[in-house]
């Protein structure tokens, strides 16, 4: 109990420091680099190159054709729905690479997979991508990143009844 309280308080100060940087989220904030020193530079560099290699990068379980997890499937489907062209998107299957599976969590400072990057910048996991899809924000981000062509503004579908 004491330990958890202690952890909560230390992580809280970390989180507070980070939120300042997170208002404009970047893949690497200086605070993060310090906190995540155990991720080797070599691996970090590789992932950095990977997230910048193409406009949209998804770290997922399985492949777009054969997703191995419902969250990964949802993310791929949403991106597909927005018409993200295959040549502008790359996916990495973390189930095939256990090193990547653990290091990507540290790299992004994000505990779960899938993870979506747009133009080298971490956008979010499944919850965030779905939320942004519903609010219409995802379309804006993809348009701004010139991943998909701008279309005339039609009001985003708010309530697709389920």
């Amino acid at each position: 109990m004491f330990r958890s309280a202690f952890r909560a308080s230390t992580s809280l100060s970390l989180a507070v420091r980070r939120t300042a940087a997170a208002s404009r989220p970047t893949a690497l904030s200086p605070g993060l680099q310090l906190a995540r020193r155990y991720l080797s530079n070599d691996v970090r560099q590789k992932i950095q190159q990977a997230v910048q290699s193409t406009p949209v990068v998804v770290f997922m379980k399985g492949t777009p054709e054969l997703p191995q997890c419902g969250f990964s499937r949802a993310v791929v489907q949403v991106l597909d729905l927005h018409g993200v062209p295959t040549e502008k998107m790359k996916t990495f299957n973390v189930l095939e690479d256990s090193e990547l599976r653990s290091s990507i969590k540290e790299f992004s400072d994000w505990p779960t997979v899938p993870q979506v990057y747009v133009n080298g910048e971490f956008v979010g996991g499944c919850d965030i991508i779905l939320g942004m899809h519903q609010s219409g924000e995802l379309e804006t981000v993809l348009e701004k990143a010139e991943v998909i062509p701008k279309v005339e503004v039609d009001s985003a579908p708010q309530s697709s009844s389920s």
Binding site: A15, R18, A22, S23, V123, M132
Partner: peptide
């Protein structure tokens, strides 16, 4: 805070 910042915050907690 934007969504990403909120989620990071909760993840950390």
């Amino acid at each position: 805070k934007n969504t990403l910042a909120r989620h990071r915050f909760v993840n950390e907690l």
